[in-house]
C-alpha cells in the first residue's frame, strides 16, 4: 500500500471572483503502516487533502496514485478506493442514520458489494475493534453518548476493511478520557490490523504524543514534513505561521537557551521531564 500525490492543486470556484487555491503543488508519499498527523490552521487545506485521498474531491491539477495506479484513470474504480481509504469525518452525527448500531455499521460494507455474511461478520468485528459491546449493537445510534457515537462512526468505516484510515479531527470536542481512548484505539489498529493512519489535528501535543510523522500545512502548502522530533525543532518557523510547538518542547527549548544541558528532541511530557531529571541528577552527582 502506498499513496502518492504529484503536483496536486485544488482550486475552489475556478473562474469566479471567489477563486481560492486550497492546495498548491502538493507532493507527498504516504507509506504503509505510517501514523501521520496533519496540522495547520483552519483553512490551511488539511481537510481538503484528506478528501483527495479517497477521491471524494478531485484535484484540479496533478495526479493521485494509489499503489502506483492513477486514481483518475478511467478504469480505476473509485468505489473500491473509498473502501480501501476509509475517511472518518469529524462529526459522527453526519453519518449515523440507521435504526440500530449494527445496521448502521453494515451500510459501508454492503455498499462495497460484500456478501451479507461478510457484511455482518465485518460489522461485528469492527464494533468489537472499537470497543462497542454487544449490549449496544441493537440500540439506536442516536441514543449513544458523544464518545460512543464517534466509535460507531469509526466502526462504520472500519467494517469496509480499509487499508488506510484518514480521520478529520478525530478527538475534537471530546473530553480527555474520550480522547485518550480514541488514540489508544488508533494505535492498536495500526499495530494489530496493519493499518496506515492519517489524522488531522489542531493539537500539537496530540501530534507529539501519537504521530510518527507530522505534516505541517499553511495556506494550501506543505511547509514541513517529517518525524515530529525533527519538525518541532523549527519553533521559530512554526511561530511565523502562527503555530506553536508542544508545551513540553517549548519548555525544553527555553531551558536549552538558558544553557541547560538538555537534548534538542524533547517534545512530550515524558521526554522533557526525563531530560530535566537527568540534568538534575547529573548536577547533583557533579556536586558530590
Amino acid at each position: 500500500m502506498s499513496i502518492r500525490l504529484e503536483n496536486v492543486f485544488y482550486i475552489y470556484g475556478k473562474g469566479t471572483k471567489e477563486e481560492t487555491c486550497a492546495l498548491k503543488k502538493i507532493n507527498l508519499t504516504i507509506e504503509k503502516n505510517e501514523f501521520v498527523g496533519i496540522i495547520g490552521h483552519t483553512g490551511s487545506g488539511k481537510s481538503t487533502l484528506l478528501r483527495l485521498l479517497n477521491g471524494l474531491e478531485r484535484a484540479t491539477e496533478g495526479s493521485v496514485y494509489y499503489n502506483g495506479k492513477n486514481i483518475y484513470d478511467k478504469d480505476f474504480s473509485m468505489k473500491t478506493l473509498r473502501g480501501k481509504v476509509g475517511l472518518v469525518f469529524q462529526y459522527p452525527e453526519h453519518q449515523l442514520f440507521e435504526e440500530t448500531v449494527i445496521k448502521d455499521v453494515q451500510f459501508g460494507p454492503a455498499n462495497m458489494g460484500m456478501t451479507p455474511l461478510e457484511t455482518e461478520l465485518f460489522a461485528f468485528q469492527a464494533l468489537k475493534d472499537v470497543g462497542i459491546g454487544e449490549e449496544l449493537i441493537d440500540v439506536s445510534p442516536f441514543l449513544l453518548s458523544g464518545g460512543q457515537k464517534r466509535r460507531v462512526a469509526l466502526a462504520g468505516v472500519l467494517a469496509m476493511k480499509p487499508e488506510v484510515l484518514a480521520l478529520d479531527e478525530p478527538v475534537a470536542g471530546l473530553d480527555p478520557e474520550g480522547k485518550e481512548n480514541i488514540f489508544a484505539l488508533l494505535k492498536r489498529l495500526q499495530k494489530e490490523r496493519d493499518l496506515t493512519i492519517l489524522f488531522v489535528s489542531h493539537s500539537m501535543e496530540d501530534i507529539a504524543e501519537y504521530a510518527d510523522r507530522v505534516i505541517v500545512m499553511n495556506q494550501g502548502e506543505i511547509v514541513l514534513d517529517g518525524e515530529p522530533h525533527k519538525v518541532f525543532r523549527y519553533q521559530k518557523e512554526l511561530g511565523q505561521i502562527g503555530l506553536d510547538v508542544p508545551v513540553s518542547a517549548k519548555i525544553a527549548n527555553s531551558l536549552r537557551e538558558k544553557g541547560f544541558a538538555i537534548p534538542g528532541d524533547c517534545i512530550t511530557v515524558d521526554e522533557t521531564a526525563d531530560a530535566v531529571i537527568r540534568w538534575y541528577q547529573d548536577r547533583k552527582r557533579g556536586a558530590v
Binding site: 480527555p176 478520557e177 508545551v247 515524558d270 521531564a273 530535566v276 531529571i277 538534575y280
Partner: peptide, 20 residues
C-alpha cells in the same frame, strides 16, 4: 474525574516525584 492535567502541571508533577 476524567480530566487531564495541563502538560506543565504533568511535568512539574514528574519532577516532584523525582525529588526536584
Amino acid at each position: 474525574c476524567g480530566l487531564a492535567l495541563p502538560d506543565v502541571s504533568r511535568i512539574v508533577q514528574k519532577l516532584n516525584n523525582a525529588g526536584l
